[in-house]
Amino acid sequence: MNPSDPSPPRSEPTSEEIARLVAKVRALTPARVLAGRIGTSYRTETQLGLREDYAAAVDAVHADIDLERDLGAEFLSRWDLFEVRTRARSKSEFLLRPDLGRQLDEEDVKLFEGCPKGADLQIVIGDGLSATAVVAQVPALLPMLVEEAQYHGLSLGRPFFIRNCRVGVLNDIGRLLDPTVVILLVGERPGLATAESLSAYLAYKPRPGHTDANRNLISNIHARGTSPRDAAGRVLRLALQMIRLGLSGVEIKEQLPEPASTNHLDDQGTPAR
């Protein structure tokens, strides 16, 4: 072929090839990319999917957890799990008055009398803004956190569940039980990608007056985000770092391990080799 000859025209991809490419791209993200349209509107399939995901998000926010029904009697017995409330006495009050969800109910404070104080780690479960996330992630994540903590010889407080819970309740927990680090597993505000996303908030010796600047966060714990196993390792690395440095919040940064390392860590908060 003469180099000066023009290249032969490239054939256009077939509709089947385009469909396969679009499917591969969309499988990589929950975002609604390459959704297509009919005129100026979404396709019917896309519109129905949006409505379904919106309904799931609304349900996750407004749902109330029944511990025995949703987590199971065996799970409650295994972890000796009990329930306390915040000052928000209803779901509607919880949504309208975030300040009440940051304070434990005074009548329930007596329930802590049998709980050990001064533990290295105190794990707490809060419904937050997604009951769905708690039900989906906590049964797998809690045992993994306990496993990691025991591996490092850390003492554990008795876990409990807080109804109508906001993140600021960490301060009351620190005041009442005086643990070194509090780990709050709480449902995230759901979006249209998933209603099953859980967050883990950590604070070193939280006390009244502390703010988000005194806390650290590992978020997006769900099937298409951070897995419970990876989250357990990250949470314990961060907790060990807090214990070693004696602080939490904006003054420390999460130290991620090498990709091939395990979740078990050394006493300095770095991956064990």
Rank of each mutant, 00 (worst) to 15 (best):
T211R: 04
H62D: 12
E74W: 07
D178L: 05
Q137Y: 01
T226S: 10
L202P: 13
L129D: 08
L145A: 13
L217Y: 03
D212K: 03
P208F: 03
T194L: 06
L154M: 05
S199H: 11
A223R: 10
C115P: 14
L238D: 09
R234K: 13
D212I: 09
R237Y: 13
E68Q: 07
G233P: 12
L236M: 11
L240I: 12
K205C: 12
G128N: 02
A193C: 10
N216Y: 05
L50I: 14
L141R: 01
S248D: 11
R26T: 08
R237H: 06
L142E: 03
R32Y: 00
D120N: 11
A232W: 04
V135S: 00
T86Q: 02
K24Q: 12
A55N: 10
E188G: 05
S11A: 13
A119D: 07
D108N: 06
R229S: 02
G246I: 14
E83A: 00
R229G: 10
N214F: 04
D80M: 01
L217N: 13
S219T: 15
L21P: 05
C115N: 09
L100Q: 10
A23I: 03
A56N: 08
S248N: 09
N263I: 06
T46L: 04
E45C: 12
A31M: 01
I162C: 11
H222R: 00
V235E: 05
G128P: 08
D172V: 03
D212H: 14
L129R: 06
V33P: 13
D99L: 13
R87Q: 15
Y151E: 09
R32D: 00
H210Y: 13
D53R: 14
Y201M: 08
L34G: 08
A223W: 09
P159N: 06
D266C: 13
L176H: 11
V135F: 00
S41Y: 15
G49C: 14
V124W: 04
V58Y: 05
P98L: 09
L202C: 14
D266R: 08
P190A: 02
A133N: 03
R51S: 14
S7Q: 04
P179V: 15
Y42M: 09
T86A: 05
S219Q: 10
C165G: 05
I221M: 08
R207C: 11
I18V: 15
R26G: 15
R166G: 12
T262W: 09
V138M: 02
L142G: 14
P13M: 07
T44C: 07
A140D: 01
G187I: 10
T180C: 03
S197P: 03
N164S: 00
S155I: 09
V235M: 03
R215P: 13
L154I: 07
G72W: 02
L76C: 03
P259T: 14
F161T: 00
A60D: 12
S199I: 11
Q103F: 06
V250C: 10
E107I: 04
G233K: 08
A73G: 00
N214W: 05
N171S: 07
Y42W: 03
D80T: 02
L198A: 13
D230K: 12
A35F: 07
Y204H: 07
